Amino acid sequence: MDRLTTMATFLKVVKFANFTNAAEELSISRTLVSRHIADLEAHLGLKLLNRTTRSVTPTEAGLRYSELCQKILGDIRSGEEALAAIRNEVEGEVSILCPIWIGSFGISRATAEFCKHHPRITVKLQFEEPSANPHDFLNQGHDLAIQPNTLRDSSIVVKKIGKIDHVLVASPDYIADHGAPQTIKDLADRECLAKMSDTAWAFENGERIVLKAPSKFASNSVFALRDAALEGLGVAMLPKGIMFDTIAKGMLAHILPDFPLAPRPLYIAFPPGGDIPRKTRLLISYLATWFKEHPSDLN
């Protein structure tokens, strides 16, 4: 029989000096109250209660045991209340893992503004290239992860917080050697430089181009893909926000400008289950609202 339950029953009997009243308080039968007390006495090998036809009073051992029960149950109650407070607190640290290139898209400003509005919450924002394993941010001790890819076959929960426009680019040398694609279908004859997780590129008009595998050059870093495009290795799909200067300086050319790519969603990932701390839920909600109000910061 559950020891904590029998302890709670014993304390009620001591409080009311009566089995029947204790049973009513606990919403259980008098028979079950008697069984709980008998189980305790058998477990301890001691008589805990003196029973008469008029009352029930604790023995000397019963008095000492009631003090122990009060301490144990009180400590458990206090501990659970403290844990509940952690869940609902609006102070403490929230750790976020974010891809390096997304640092150029307002995430730093958004989290800094969050800290300003919630001075008792601290944010630790770490930038590094994402792992192929969607659970790694949790294994590394982070609470959240900014995730530019849809997570397949994962228990990790994601919430969309914005979208990022992408463009196709290639170097002037590559275009001189291979010609500029005139239609989306022309990409099938070009070397496409893609992220390792990409299998196809989608366009706003609904067309898709399936990427050849293996690619001549692939990476999980958009900066590595940009460098490969600069070296003339092929056509790369890159976030629009990091390409303005490179295109403006003529180092890379915008390919198929009349066929815009479908915007890619930006997610924030967090552990499964709805029982996450309030401070973390506040930050998730804040980032979703912030990027909705500042869409230009993602492009």
Rank of each mutant, 00 (worst) to 15 (best):
K163C: 01
L225N: 04
L63I: 14
I76F: 11
T111Q: 06
V167I: 06
R109V: 05
G234Y: 08
L211V: 05
M7V: 01
I184R: 05
A61H: 04
I28V: 08
Y286R: 10
L4M: 09
P99F: 03
M1T: 08
F223L: 11
L230E: 12
I146L: 14
S55F: 04
H36N: 14
I86P: 07
I164L: 08
D245P: 06
I76D: 07
H142P: 01
R54T: 09
A84I: 12
S215Y: 07
D186I: 01
L283T: 11
H135F: 15
F114W: 10
S155I: 15
M237I: 07
A228Y: 08
V167T: 04
S66M: 06
G241M: 09
E67W: 04
L283S: 02
A38P: 00
V13H: 01
I242W: 05
A17R: 15
V222E: 11
A61S: 13
P265C: 10
D186V: 01
K15F: 00
S108D: 07
N88Y: 15
V210W: 08
I184S: 07
Q140F: 15
W290P: 07
A110E: 05
L230Y: 07
A228Q: 11
L63Y: 11
E129P: 10
V90H: 14
S78K: 12
Y174K: 12
P260D: 08
T52I: 05
L4S: 07
K212Q: 11
K71F: 15
S215M: 13
G162Q: 05
A82C: 13
N21A: 12
D136C: 09
K15I: 00
K116A: 12
H254S: 06
I76S: 03
A176S: 13
G234F: 10
G162S: 03
E128I: 14
L138R: 12
A42L: 00
L11V: 06
L4F: 13
G106H: 04
S29T: 02
G45Q: 03
A145S: 12
D153G: 10
V210K: 13
A84V: 10
G162C: 03
D245F: 01
S104V: 02
T20D: 04
L211D: 09
W101I: 07
I184C: 02
R152T: 09
R190P: 00
M196Y: 03
L256S: 08
A248L: 12
S155F: 15
Y174Q: 10
R264P: 00
I175A: 10
V235R: 06
S155A: 14
N21C: 07
P239F: 00
I86H: 15
D189H: 13
G273V: 01
D198L: 09
T59W: 09
D258C: 08
L168G: 08
T6V: 11
H36M: 10
K163V: 03
G92F: 04
A262I: 09
G232E: 07
A23S: 02
C115H: 06
K116Q: 12
P260R: 02
A112E: 12
I268P: 02
L49Q: 05
M243T: 08
K279H: 12
F127Y: 14
A22H: 01
H166V: 05
K160E: 14
K249H: 06
